[in-house]
Simulated assay, not measured.
Amino acid sequence: ILAERVEFLTDTSFKNPVMKFSEETFRTFVISKSIPRNYSFVIMMTALMPQRQCQICRHADEEFRIVANSWRYSPMFSNKLFFGSVDFDECPRIFQQLGINTAPVFLFFSDKAKMKKPEAMDIQMLGFSAETIGRWISEKSDVQIRVIRPPSYSGSLALLILCSLIAALLYMRRNNLDFLYNRTSWALGSLSIVFAMTSGQMWNHIRGPPLMHRSPKGVSYVHGSSGGQLVIETYIIIILNGVIAFGMILMNEAVKGKGDPKKRKSKFVMHSNFLFYLIWLQNIFINQTILLFKETNFC
């Protein structure tokens, strides 16, 4: 019977590297106690139904399938490791049996008899990129997976379009290139890069978090753990930092401006009060975020 199961899983894996389980098939092939397994399983617990609006689940599913396809077409492929997924709306009892109340979750079911409970991947700490999942599987088993991503030409195309636009602009302004020496333009460009990096946009690009999080209590705009963030958080930080930088510029211009010293002094005081008010608002936002984090993790 075990040989028949392995043969069935191997044939199914050739057709679809990520097998979609029902409650019955999951209990039969993954957690069956009557017949021991001589193969390991990597299972993604997810919620891909449209009504769930789980954007992070869709992104995790894409990365998971990249790993599964890399293993399927690898010369090292064997019947010692298989990939599968379980959807919450189709198998709620499996989630309840495993004690899982969130998604996505990656579980490793080892073929070793001593491993009674599956091991979960810490996506808050490690993320869930295909390369990270592949390394995690290698740590849990003797399988080495070389992740091969499908070619994507969108980045190269965007870079080509950007270079073409810059070249066209320089050609049209070839007789007047004074704008290249404009300090204001370079300052705005530098500030844009600083705001993007300090707000966590690069983290968003790498991890692919959702815009916001829907929970039974409502919509959350701040992530509940220290190891993650939501996209809207970065937008809030960009706005706060941008407005504070704008206030600093106003203060500087008020001092450097020409005219009546009394008027310049009054402008400086007004802009200073405006800046202090913005900093006060930022401190309130940070304090509320810290309180939310403490409430989520320690209460």
Rank of each mutant, 00 (worst) to 15 (best):
F109L: 03
K258P: 10
Q201D: 00
C54W: 04
E23P: 02
T289I: 06
I100P: 03
I1P: 12
E295T: 08
K117L: 02
G224M: 08
F95N: 04
F108M: 00
S74P: 07
E7L: 15
I133V: 12
M49P: 03
I145S: 04
V30N: 00
N252D: 09
V231W: 05
K33D: 08
M172L: 10
M115F: 00
P36K: 06
Q53N: 15
Q97S: 10
R214Q: 13
N69L: 13
S190Y: 12
I232V: 09
M251L: 15
A3C: 13
G218F: 06
I193S: 10
W136N: 03
M45K: 08
V243D: 00
G155L: 08
E24Y: 04
I1Y: 14
I238W: 02
P104L: 11
F41L: 09
G259Q: 10
I145C: 04
Y73L: 13
F293P: 05
L170Y: 06
K20M: 10
L211N: 02
D111M: 00
I290F: 11
K265W: 15
R72H: 14
W136K: 01
C163N: 07
R149W: 04
C91R: 02
S129E: 06
F14C: 14
T296S: 14
V255M: 11
M270T: 15
Y153G: 01
E4Y: 13
I43R: 05
I35H: 06
P261W: 13
R264P: 10
W280Y: 15
L180N: 09
L291F: 15
H223T: 04
P92I: 09
E4P: 04
V269A: 05
L211V: 11
G247W: 06
S129H: 01
G228I: 02
T296A: 13
G127A: 02
I206R: 08
S85A: 11
G228S: 12
W203N: 05
M125D: 05
N297Y: 09
L291H: 13
S190G: 12
M197W: 09
